[in-house]
Write a protein that binds this DNA or RNA. Structure first.
Lengths: 293, 293
DNA sequence: CGTGATTACGGTTGACGTAATCATA
DNA sequence: TATGATTACGTCAACCGTAATCACG
């Protein structure tokens, strides 16, 4: 199971074509055919059907392994490479939308003050991409967010041995339109809101599946879907009554024309987690200092 | 970065010798030398010092990647192999000590009733080994335990795409000797016990580091270390006053001459999680039915 | 028939073993 | 000087490309 062969296998499966994969990889059609044949001979199983080219059940299972495997391989190579080369002055920080806070902005400013000439980029990414991007060297630093029990770490996919540290922890609140019957409550229980209309904002809010897992309840049906990464857009929709949204309290309170009611049960907090490789360059180390515990 | 080369690299690093690794792998000394040279040329970095043979900093980082990488590779191969071959009648279940419950015993009995002739083995393993053993095919089924917030999943190392399901969830209690000043309380808070004397039983109890993480407190210093995997031994030591132990309530109540006081804060539960591959054989599927949610 | 996968075959490259050399405790 | 890593070199297998063949739509 040479990684080389796995790489062409995933390319073929993605392209659904030997020839297209060959073009993409810079091989001949023949070489790709031989790669797949070698893999199938090695595993003694058909991995792809031909005409149309599609993964067999065994191939589908192999695909689930191949992605993380190749990612880890890239991560290992990137890590060794970064050890050898001098730490770059460039700093690339990847954040999920709710992880971009005033404290982060201040930490970046501090890094630029202490390391003049640092070119800093802040990039908004999906939560799921951040550990992978840090591991493969695309990011110097990552900040993800999520909800968890107080002082519990967030469950991150361990694509590679990365260092993680809490960067912030804050209470949660539900955003409601001002006139909503629940808007004048002093606190809300999540289990009482399972049947409410919820905003589904997978790219910038808390995934509804997480709320279901936390309560054990079935509900939290999406009433309205928001695909943007702009938190202000989400606040606006929630304040306008398109559905409830659960957000860090400080963020929820910024909803224009909306009310932010603290979540009192279950005991959950919003958490921002810092992710980076073991060895950090100059400016990255300054920003990483925003870890709190 | 051929996995073959990585495999010899970890062997050399473990043996601290090229020749010993060569014997272990069935290669000549020369081949091993060439493998390491190829790896170092590929990554353009020295990975090992010679005489004595020890990993350089870069080599140490690579070692951290190599283990999981090779494990995943084995897991992929094992999974494909298990798909191809007929499901075996043999059933091997690996459990951490606190995951071996009456319900599991009943489920195994049920599997044997429904699939007569099944040879079943139950094996006690360290928590950390279970997902890896399931992934590489050493186990058909794994049961790990740990503490978590109610209805939160346990954080498992994702060595491979495995299916996990909750198998049990139960309250926690602290085991104290009968005469202990706290033994007559009706409930205890973990944060009040940070400075108490604790039993450190990494192989069968709850790791003290987990308690520190859950409370954010520094304490939970080990006063007495117990290296066995026998829970009854742990109960005996706790009841004799060698230190406190946190255990599932039903287990804690079995302490001979000891008191079990429920844990009331933080809100934590003991959880048993079922781990298996996507495709299960006959008897394994019966046991897997003990999942509860 | 034509597009696209497979098979045949040859040149080149790379992998491993033998054996000689080098280096260090 | 002895143990153990490296280098030199020969053999053999594996890999990839060219080109012919095969098969499905």
């Amino acid at each position: 199971m040479d990684p080389h062969l796995l790489r062409t296998f995933v390319a073929v499966a993605r392209c659904r074509s030997f020839s297209a994969a060959a073009r993409e990889l810079g091989f001949t059609q023949s070489a790709v055919s031989q790669h797949i044949a070698a893999l199938e001979a090695d595993l003694r199983t058909a991995l792809l059907t031909r005409r149309p080219v599609e993964p067999t059940p065994a191939g589908a299972r192999l695909l689930e392994h191949a992605g993380p495997l190749l990612l880890r391989l890239d991560a290992a190579r990137a890590e060794i490479a970064s050890l050898a080369s001098a730490p770059t002055a460039e700093l690339v920080v990847g954040v999920s939308p709710l992880a971009l806070t005033a404290r982060l902005a201040a930490a970046v400013a501090e890094a630029e003050r202490r390391h003049p000439g640092t070119g800093t980029t802040v990039r908004i990414l999906d939560r799921a991409e951040i550990p992978a991007a840090v591991a493969t060297g695309g990011l110097d630093l990552g900040l993800t967010d999520g909800v968890a029990a107080p002082s519990d770490p967030l469950p991150l996919p361990d694509v590679a041995p990365l260092t993680t540290a809490a960067a912030a922890q804050s209470p949660l609140a539900v955003v409601l339109p001002d006139g909503h019957p629940l808007a004048r409550r002093s606190g809300l229980r999540l289990s009482d809101l399972a049947d409410a209309r919820w905003l589904d904002a997978p790219e910038c809010g808390i995934p509804l599946a997480r709320l279901r897992a936390a309560t054990g309840a079935r509900g939290f049906r999406p009433a309205f879907r928001y695909d943007g990464t702009d938190v202000r857009g989400l606040l606006t929709l929630a304040a306008a009554g398109h559905g409830l949204a659960l957000l860090p309290r400080a963020v929820a309170e910024q909803a224009p024309g909306g009310a932010a009611v603290p979540l009192v049960a279950p005991r959950l907090v919003h958490r921002i987690e810092l992710v980076h490789r073991a060895v950090l360059g100059g400016p990255a180390a300054v920003v990483a200092a925003l870890a709190v515990d």
